[in-house]
Design a protein around this nucleic acid. Structure first.
Lengths: 199, 199
DNA sequence: CGTGTCAATTGACATAGTGTAAAGTTAAGA
DNA sequence: TCTTAACTTTACACTATGTCAATTGACACG
C-alpha cells in the first residue's frame, strides 16, 4: 500500500540527486526535478514541504545509499594517528565527487536559509568529530607538531579538507582525485605531524 | 557638468559596498541599493546595465579606494621568498575582511554568471601571480620543500589563502584576523619551506 | 527668453522561480 | 458501490531582475 508512495518519493530523491550532480548544483528548479521524476511540479510539494526540505532529504538519502557510515568504519582498522589521517583523506576525498553537486547547492543557500545551515552543520559535524579524533590521536602519540594546539589543529584540518578546497584544486586547477588526495596528505602531514618523532 | 553624474555613480558604488559588507553579501536587492543611494531602482539601470555589472564595478571601486595595488607594493621590500610569503599572508589577510561581503556575493553568482566569473578570475589572477612569484622565489633559493613541484605548490598556496578558508577559520571557527594570519603562516611555512635549509 | 539635453522619476509590464490553494481524475480496497 | 490517497491541472500570490515609455526639473547655449 505504501510501496507506491515510497516508490515516488525515492524516484524524486534519485532525480534530485542525479540532476544536482549532472548540473553541479546549478540551475535545478523544482519544475526540472518534477519532470525528471515523472510527476507534476505540485506533486513534489505532497512529499516535501519546500525546496530546502527536499535538498536535505536528498543528502540523507545519498549518505544512506552511498554508505558513508560504512566507509567511516575503516577507521576501526587504523592503528595510529597518521593512519587515521591518511584514511580520512582517502575516504573523504573519494566521497566528495559523489556529493559535490548537492553539497554545492546547500553551501550556496545556507547563508540565507536557516534550515539548510542546520542540516549542513549536522552533516559536517560528523566530519569535524573525525578531525578532532585524529588530532587527539596524534597528540596522545606525542607526534602533533609543537606549533599547534589541539583545537587550532582540529579547525585547520577541518578547513583544509573542505569541499571548497577540493573544488578549487580539482575543478579549477585540474588536479585528479588521486593527485588531490596525495597532495593533501603531504600538506597535512608536513604541518600537523612532527616527522622527527614518528617511529 | 559631469561632476553630478560621477557623484551619483559614486554614491551608488558606496551604497553597494556598504550594504554588501553590512549584510555579508546576502539579501541585497537592487531596490535596497537604490534606496540606500537615495535614487529610484530604475535609475540604477541608467548607470549600470545589470546587477552583475554593478557588482563588478563595485569591486574595482573598492580595490581602487582601498589601494590594494599600493599594498602589494610592499612586496618590493621583501628580500627573500620567506619574506614574500609572510608579507603576502599579511596583506591579503588584512584585505579580505574589507571585501568579504562583496567577494561572497560574487562567489555565489559566478557559477551561473559568465561575466561574474570572468571579473572574479581577473581579480584573482593577480593573487595567483603573486603565489607563483613566491613559489619561484622559494625554489630559486632552493628552500622549496622537496615534496612540491612549482606548479603544485602554487596551486596549493593559492587554495590555502582562499576567501573560503578565511571565512571558515574566522567566521565559523571564531579565529581573530591576527590568529588567522599567524596560523596560516605556520601552515604554509611548514609545508612549503624546507626549514632545514633556511639560513 | 525659448529650446534642447541629461539625469532622474513614475508606473506598467515581462519573465522566472517558489510556494499555496482548489477542484477534478484515477485506481485500489473495504 | 463508496471512500481514500496520490496525483493532475489550473490559477494565483510573491519576490526579484530587467525593460519600456512618458514625464519632470535643472542647466546650458544661442
Amino acid at each position: 500500500m505504501s510501496s507506491k508512495k515510497i516508490d515516488t518519493r525515492t524516484r524524486i530523491l534519485e532525480a534530485t540527486w542525479h540532476l544536482m550532480e549532472q548540473r553541479r548544483g546549478q540551475g535545478v528548479s523544482m519544475g526540472d526535478i518534477a519532470k525528471a521524476a515523472g510527476i507534476s511540479r505540485q506533486a513534489l510539494y505532497l512529499h516535501f514541504d519546500s525546496r530546502t526540505e527536499l535538498m536535505i532529504a536528498t543528502v540523507n538519502y545519498v549518505d544512506e545509499v552511498k554508505g558513508l557510515n560504512e566507509r567511516l568504519e575503516q577507521f576501526q582498522e587504523a592503528t595510529s594517528g597518521v593512519d587515521l589521517l591518511d584514511i580520512c583523506v582517502d575516504v573523504w576525498g573519494n566521497h566528495i565527487p559523489e556529493i559535490y553537486g548537492l553539497a554545492k547547492a546547500l553551501l550556496n543557500t545556507r547563508d540565507t536559509d536557516e534550515a539548510t545551515a542546520a542540516a549542513w552543520n549536522s552533516c559536517m559535524g560528523c566530519l569535524h568529530d573525525v578531525c578532532q579524533n585524529i588530532i587527539e590521536a596524534l597528540d596522545e602519540e606525542k607526534i602533533l607538531a609543537a606549533k599547534w594546539s589541539r583545537s587550532e589543529a582540529t579547525e585547520m584540518l577541518y578547513t583544509m579538507i573542505s569541499i571548497h578546497n577540493w573544488e578549487q584544486l580539482t575543478l579549477e586547477s585540474g588536479w585528479t582525485t588521486a593527485q588531490y588526495i596525495s597532495r593533501m596528505k603531504v600538506l597535512l602531514r608536513s604541518t600537523l605531524v612532527d616527522e622527527s618523532k614518528v617511529s
